[in-house]
Simulated scan of single mutants.
Amino acid sequence: MDFIKDVTDNTYHILFLDISMPNIDGITLSKELVKLSPETIIIFISTQEDLVFEAFGMNVFSFIKKEELSRKLEQVFLNTLNYLKENDSLFLKTMEGNIFVKVNEIYYFSSINRKIYLHTQRECSRVNYMFLKILSKELPPLFMFINRSTIVNVKHVEIYSKDSVIISNDSKDKLYISRGRQKEVLEHILKYRSKDKNIWML
C-alpha cells in the first residue's frame, strides 16, 4: 500500500512483483499500476504460475518461478533492458545512479558551469557526463546541438526562428541558436518536423 502511494510521485521502470502479498495481491496491484504508472514493466516472481495469466496484458513482461530465480533472473533482466532500449528509452548516467528515460519525455540537455542537466517533462536533473559531445553519441537523430551548450529534442520545438527555438514545456523555455549553427538547425528541423503541423516557423 505504501508503494501505491509512492508510485504517484516516482517513476519505476521495472518492478519485480510477487503474487501472494498481505493486504493486496500482485494481480490487483498490477491492475492499479496500469492506471498510475502505465510505463512500468512488471516481472512476476511466484510459485503460482496459473495466476500469472490473469495479469498478462497489464504490462507484464515476464514470469519467473521462485525455484528458478537464481538461474533465470539475469537473463530476464537483460531481456527487459534490451526491450526498454528498443522502445524509445535512453539509458543515462545521473548523479543518483543509472536511469531509463523515454525519449518523448526529454526536452533538452544543457551544460552550465561544466555541469550537464537533463530537462524532462517531470524535472531537471544533473547527468553524469563530462561533455555534451560524449552524451550526444548516445542520443538518437532527433536530438541536435543548437549551440555548444545545448542539445534539443526536435519533437519538443514548438516555435522556431532564425536565432532561437521555444520548447513546448510549461515554462516555454527560449533557447538561442548560435550563428554558426543556424543553417544546420533549420535543416534538421525541416528533416524531422516537416510533416508536423505543431510547430511555428517564424
Rank of each mutant, 00 (worst) to 15 (best):
L36W: 03
N198R: 10
L78Y: 15
F44G: 04
M95T: 13
D50E: 15
K65H: 12
K65P: 12
S136A: 14
K102Y: 02
S70I: 11
F61D: 02
K155T: 08
I112W: 08
L132F: 07
I45W: 08
I106C: 03
F109V: 08
S37D: 05
N79Q: 12
K162I: 14
K65M: 13
G97I: 02
I167Y: 10
L139N: 09
K66T: 10
N23G: 07
L142Q: 08
Y107R: 04
K93V: 04
I189K: 00
H156M: 02
V76M: 07
S171L: 10
H156Y: 07
I159R: 08
V127I: 15
M144A: 15
E39Y: 10
F100C: 00
I41A: 10
K72D: 15
N87C: 02
I189S: 00
E138N: 10
S62I: 04
L15C: 04
I19N: 04
K162C: 09
R114S: 14
V7Q: 01
E158K: 15
D170Q: 14
S46H: 08
F109G: 06
T47I: 13
G180I: 01
R193A: 00
L84I: 02
T8W: 09
K65N: 14
V101N: 01
E39C: 05
V103I: 15
V185T: 04
M58E: 14
F109A: 07
G97E: 00
V154W: 00
S178T: 03
T80H: 06
Y176N: 15
D163G: 08
I45E: 12
M144R: 04
S125A: 12
I199V: 06
F100E: 00
F77D: 08
N23L: 12
I4K: 14
L29F: 04
V127L: 02
S110T: 11
D173I: 12
E54L: 14
M21N: 07
S136I: 03
T28A: 15
I166M: 11
N128P: 02
L135M: 08
N82I: 10
L118H: 01
G26I: 07
Y107A: 05
Y176H: 13
E86N: 13
M21Q: 07
M21S: 07
F16S: 06
I64L: 05
D25E: 07
H156I: 02
F53W: 10
F56S: 04
E74S: 12
S111Q: 15
V152D: 00
